[in-house]
């Protein structure tokens, strides 16, 4: 393996590196997509937590390419952009990664439905944590939980779509030829 790596040309090295930042890049893209206004009545209130889906997906399939450092960076970037209290999103994403990394045996080579089902639990915990943190940090108190529950359900609903796109990207671009 190391022998092959040594024989790489600079271009190949660059290409490999570019491929390796793909999980991070795609996560930033879905985050920006989530920020884009849809102008559909009622939708803004229940915007799915796209970054949570992305972090969870990459934590299962490519933990080597999206570790704690990048998870933290995405969380901070999202907090800065959405106007949420700084650190709350980062904490949520870090703990999501931690849960998945510690259950790698459970997630290993599991069918899609199982990972989706498990996401239901992880996402619920994440939403609850975010709600609690924002409520504690904000002086004005807690957001009504009912609205967040709708956002949680929508997040579960978009999981297959985002996961499908990511798995296409993973098989198409990430696996070395």
């Amino acid at each position: 393996m190391t022998g092959i790596a040594q024989r790489r040309t600079p271009w190949q090295k660059f290409e490999a590196r570019a491929r390796n930042i793909l999980p991070f890049g795609l996560t930033v893209v879905v985050m920006l997509f989530g920020l884009t206004p849809t102008y559909v009545p009622g939708l803004a209130q229940i915007t799915p937590l796209y970054t949570l889906v992305a972090i969870y997906f990459w934590a299962i399939y490519r933990p080597d390419l999206l570790g704690y450092g990048l998870g933290f960076a995405i969380g901070i970037l999202e907090d800065l952009l959405t106007g949420a209290p700084l650190g709350v999103g980062a904490l949520t994403l870090l703990l999501t990664q931690w849960v998945v990394f510690n259950q790698q045996k459970f997630f290993h080579a599991k069918p899609f439905v199982i990972t989706w089902f498990a996401f239901g639990f992880v996402a619920f915990g994440a939403v609850l944590l975010k709600w609690l943190c924002i409520g504690l940090v904000t002086e004005s108190g807690f957001t009504p939980f009912g609205d967040l529950f709708a956002a949680y359900l929508i997040t579960l609903a978009v999981y297959p779509i985002v996961a499908w796109l990511f798995s296409k990207a993973q098989t198409g671009l990430l696996v070395e030829p």
Binding site: L35, T47, T82, T143
Partner: peptide
């Protein structure tokens, strides 16, 4: 150009 935060924060850019 951005409607951020979903249910957690109500602000726009």
């Amino acid at each position: 150009v951005a409607d951020s935060g979903g249910a957690f924060a109500q602000s726009v850019l």
